[in-house]
Design a protein around this nucleic acid. Structure first.
Length: 507
DNA sequence: AAAAAAT
């Protein structure tokens, strides 16, 4: 699409066939439209063959938008009017059973036990979120039916399946594993374990156990009613006969698209499922279900009721998505260091691609006098638990990590997420990873709060990757200008302050 | 490349 009749230096540099500035999802800033900045990203965004880009974003506008969002939250961040409508598809079986497809207005209407209800309210849940009000009647209906449920990050998927699991247990068999939840990382499994403990704290006789590396001694038995684990460890324990899975009733995969898609993980999940002959309810939950994986998911969880979202309904409105273009790959570090002050207003997570980058950046920030921690798969299990515990407590406010923490982790004080490296699929580095992007930024803006995500781009490839992600979700990203640091800083600060106000609403 | 299992 670049015009060969106009072989400008710009066109030479950016041979970009499908970029049309008029349809680009990026929102250029004032400086780019004025041609003031010389950044290559501006050049990409400026007309190659199309009309000049619109110029509508200013920091004051951003601040106003964010203020409006905080306003819209009202008194309850748990009840977010911005959540999109979900599309519910009933399985054939469900249709013949009559129509349980109503929304409950309150947790009391679900008919769950008073003990579980007490646990729900003790977690400060007041009303069911959109996904909860749609999914729970189907999940709790008898006989049990399978479910594939999609909902945005931070809208209460975990609580939905935990309530279901607790409602399915036979409390006369305290030493018999009856429900299994699997997650793609140790940290997420631990977190779910915590939610089960919280919601189940008033349930008499409930037993809960984590099955992640290092939690089950060799030769010891897994004999809790609810087991939460990672696939490898669980498979291992079943094979060694430390874990009797024969009476298992409910199998739940959190981050199901990741669990079924990823080579290795998918195999392990399938094998675990095959070792559980009496399972009668298979639950798959995620914020993302790419089409290819969805088909496999439907095989894994046959005849499931489905709750789906459209692609452009996946992003959470409370997350202000921004980007910053950096002078070079190495130049990203200086920008990051300059952002440190803002990162500690709330808590922040910095995502990088490689473990080695996480180590390198963490070391350098520490040397430069900044307090940060890093965590990734090379750390020993106990150490990983300890670092995350510190982060949750706010004792450590800046965490540098890999995709290990991209999914599911719920730390409500996180007001900023930085994509130091844009997430990419595969080894070839050609495919932007839209799903991982969405999950990463979903670490902030949870349960109706506001947050900021800043993605670093530094060359044509990284810019185009981000551009593609923005187009995938049909969203605008706001450009932060390195040249106008004061404005940039004020803009971010404004949003983060709103985020903290949002937190206070909960109290 | 990272993750998830150890061996």
């Amino acid at each position: 699409m670049s015009d060969p009749a106009k072989p400008t230096s710009l066109a030479d540099r950016i041979t970009r066939p499908d970029l049309d500035a008029s349809s680009a999802s990026f929102t250029p800033t004032a400086s780019s439209a004025q041609g003031k900045s010389t950044s290559w990203a501006d050049e990409v965004a400026s007309p190659v063959g199309g009309p000049p880009p619109l110029n509508q974003t200013s920091s004051s506008l951003i601040a106003a938008q964010v203020d409006g969002q905080v306003e819209a939250l009202g008194g309850s961040p748990l009840h977010d009017s911005r959540e999109p409508e979900v599309q519910v598809t009933l399985s054939q079986i469900q249709r013949t059973l009559g129509d349980p497809l109503y929304s409950v207005g309150s947790f009391e209407d679900l008919g769950i036990s008073p003990q579980i209800l007490k646990g729900i309210f003790s977690m400060n849940f007041k009303k069911p979120s959109k996904i909860q009000e749609k999914a729970l009647p189907l999940l709790l209906n008898d006989p049990p039916s399978n479910m594939i449920a999609q909902s945005q990050s931070g809208t209460g998927k975990t609580a939905a399946f935990v309530i279901t699991v607790l409602s399915r247990l036979d409390y006369s068999k305290p030493n018999q594993p009856q429900a299994l939840c699997l997650a793609p990382s140790r940290e997420l499994a631990r977190q779910i374990e915590g939610v089960v403990k919280s919601i189940g704290q008033f349930v008499d006789g409930l037993t809960i156990q984590a099955a992640v590396p290092g939690t089950v001694e060799r030769g010891a038995k897994v004999n809790a009613m609810v087991v939460i684990g990672t696939p490898g460890t669980v498979m291992d324990l079943i094979k060694r006969r430390q874990f009797d899975a024969t009476q298992m009733k409910v199998l739940c995969l959190d981050e199901a698209d990741n669990m079924l898609d990823q080579q290795g993980l998918g195999d392990q999940c399938l094998r675990v499922k095959q070792m559980m002959p009496s399972v009668n309810q298979i639950l798959l939950f995620s914020a993302t279900f790419p089409e290819g994986v969805m088909r496999y998911a439907q095989q894994f969880s046959p005849n499931a009721n489905e709750i789906k979202l459209k692609r452009d309904e996946l992003t959470v409105a409370g997350i202000q998505q921004m980007y910053m273009d950096c002078p070079s790959d190495e130049g990203k570090y200086d920008i990051l260091a300059r952002l440190y002050g803002l990162m500690t207003v709330g808590s922040s997570i910095i995502f990088v691609k490689k473990r080695s980058t996480a180590d390198r950046i963490a070391d350098r920030l520490l040397k430069d006098g900044h307090q940060v921690a890093s965590v990734h798969g090379a750390f020993e299990g106990g150490e990983r638990d300890a670092i995350l515990a510190k982060f949750r407590l706010g004792e450590c406010k800046v965490l540098i990590t890999t995709n290990v923490l991209a999914r599911g982790i719920d730390v409500q004080s996180v007001s900023m997420v930085i994509n130091y490296d844009i997430p990419m699929k595969g080894r070839t580095e050609m495919d932007p990873d839209s799903e991982t992007y969405l999950h990463r930024i979903g670490r902030t803006g949870r349960f109706g709060r506001v947050g900021v995500s800043i993605s670093f781009v530094f060359d044509r490839k990284s810019y185009m990757a981000l551009q593609e992600i923005a187009q995938h979700y049909q969203i605008d990203l706001v450009r932060l200008d390195v040249e106008e640091w004061d404005v940039t800083e004020a803009t971010i600060k404004n949003i983060i302050k709103s985020s903290r106000a949002g937190n206070n609403l909960k109290a």
